[in-house]
Design a protein around this nucleic acid. Sequence first.
DNA 1: CGGCTAAGGACAATCGAGTGCTGAGGGAGG
DNA 2: CCTCCCTCAGCACTCGATTGTCCTTAGCCG
Lengths: 363, 363
Amino acid sequence: MPAAKVTLRDVAVLAGVHSGTASRALNESTRSLVNADTVRRVTEAANSLGYRPNHLARSFKTQRTFSIGVIIPDLNNPLFPPIVRGIEDRLASAGYVALLGNTENDAGRERRIFAEMEARHVDGLVLATARREDPMLLGVARNAPPIVLVNRIVEDHAFSSVSVDDGAGIRLVVEHLRALGHRRIAHVAGPQELSTGFGRYRGFQASMRSAGLEIDPKLVSFSSSFSIAEGARCAAEVLAARPRPSAIVAANDMLALGCYAEIEECGLRCPDGVSLVGFNDMPFVDRLTPPLTTVRIPHAEIGAQAAELILERIDQPDSPLKSLLLAPELVVRGSTVQGPKLNGKMSASSRRSPSRSEDPSRS
Amino acid sequence: MPAAKVTLRDVAVLAGVHSGTASRALNESTRSLVNADTVRRVTEAANSLGYRPNHLARSFKTQRTFSIGVIIPDLNNPLFPPIVRGIEDRLASAGYVALLGNTENDAGRERRIFAEMEARHVDGLVLATARREDPMLLGVARNAPPIVLVNRIVEDHAFSSVSVDDGAGIRLVVEHLRALGHRRIAHVAGPQELSTGFGRYRGFQASMRSAGLEIDPKLVSFSSSFSIAEGARCAAEVLAARPRPSAIVAANDMLALGCYAEIEECGLRCPDGVSLVGFNDMPFVDRLTPPLTTVRIPHAEIGAQAAELILERIDQPDSPLKSLLLAPELVVRGSTVQGPKLNGKMSASSRRSPSRSEDPSRS
DNA sequence: CGGCTAAGGACAATCGAGTGCTGAGGGAGG
DNA sequence: CCTCCCTCAGCACTCGATTGTCCTTAGCCG
């Protein structure tokens, strides 16, 4: 086991060539400059010595680290692990690693993390923290490494991005609820400075209109963050309206969790008293009682595509910006049932979900 | 905004000193070798030029990267995000970053990730993937960077580690169930090649014995992985025993999720028919119906302590190995209720919890 | 007043790989 | 036979910071 530090020079000596030649022989892209027989000798020498190129030296010389910064709000939010895995898996297959940073939605932290990533010379950045009008992003756009936005995007398309068609997702929801006979539909909206919160609210407006339903301003409440507590607060607001809404569209699953709690708090039941829909299909929302009807987004695929885009921009820095919009999918579970109008009777409560989250790991 | 690459040499020239001197002046630990006035001049020059030391060059020269490899089975398992955050937060405050790797419990992947981390010259490793007798770990122990094990540990204490007192946790569970009057208690055990699965099983045996309860071999089933599917399979096994158990102790929350499903599948109800306890207090298990009684472990603290240990070993490579054992805590929720009366003959499944109103449409 | 010491900096080597330039050698074509 | 070109490999420098060694100078004491 020759595990000790074997340098390129050692290999070169064994192969009877100069270290520069050994470098070219071992390097895929410069191999053509070297005689095939020499390449063979060098390769054999490298193998027999167990040569491992020194990553640090290479990075130092080439200014490429084969690492990508991934900045998210909070890893504890179940939305992000699958996305991060999608990113990491794709990156790994290309020989890259991810550096993870959690901003806690704090601008100062975000700036610090960003600086840290730059100092470490990441080859690119994937950001899941963008605000619709993001001062930091606009400031750094100049001489920063390639950036890809994920999930959330910024107003003007100055960056490549991968996101979900929020409007289309909400449309599926509203049409689903309307088909069930709901007419008084409430919306617990997300923060409007985030593209997701904004886009879903706009989607709600648009699809209510095109469904011929009226939006009662009392049935729309804006949360200040995608959190359970805010979901509960907003749910309380819309549930206080009279006549009561028969269904609530939450802008994401976290908010929906808050709604569950508040619905119970009000002495109501879901879905019999109020139907509820979330967004994101976070892991384990299919295990709730009742299982949550929600909009599934392809988490891992989002991550993988983001990784793909960033790799593309690294290889070809001049390639055009791309905005990928992935299609969401409605997953109907037990939290939505027939509304009041079509059928005077309350219908049966939740059934088992057809789609359960996979259970991957061990502890 | 002088954002372009400013090197140490530039700073030195502006300050009118040699680059070596500038290096010492800027470096905390060698500053004492330089005249105070010179330090001031260099510092000012550095500030005015916006000098940012080149991390790559420094790492190359010193062979320290200020990065730590963190290897876990799967980020999608809700157990890990809080631990990883605990690690990252502590590392960040010391100027380190974490490189994350997911093994998917695959030995080949694990080996590859390990090699990748080594190639990148991480200063240390935190592993959450250890098996009780881990061939890879024993193999690499020689000239690898410092390693700290987390959550899972290996048989002999050849590594520093941070874990939870599994036996104590299970003892809390068994005593809780016994106090509720349960006597026929089943155990859905985890994989026995993992210290967690093994330790909890041993804890189950010990605390049943000291509680004066008998262990019916039919009431113990061993899962082959900490997964929902395995939980369901094992639950089916123990629920098939007669007389039926009145409570199930699952070795972790994932298995407990499987138990929930299987209990329902059998036409039983939790907690009225069967009480259920998990382990780990994964996020959102308090939102299940019924909320899961489980053993809480201090996730973030585990991570933070692991980071602490690894930093310690980096600073003092000869410091002694440490094994930290953190105390678990029982969190009683709705999934455990009074067991069958000790002298009564009442069938467990006929009981109804008075505290929860039932849904008539369900039966 | 000479010599010794200590402090403060300059100098240069170094880490390991990548790469532009140079030059040797050989084959082909005029 | 001479010239030209092409292939291939050697040489040396480079990236930027760290660090061991040595030199200069000033201060101090006998």
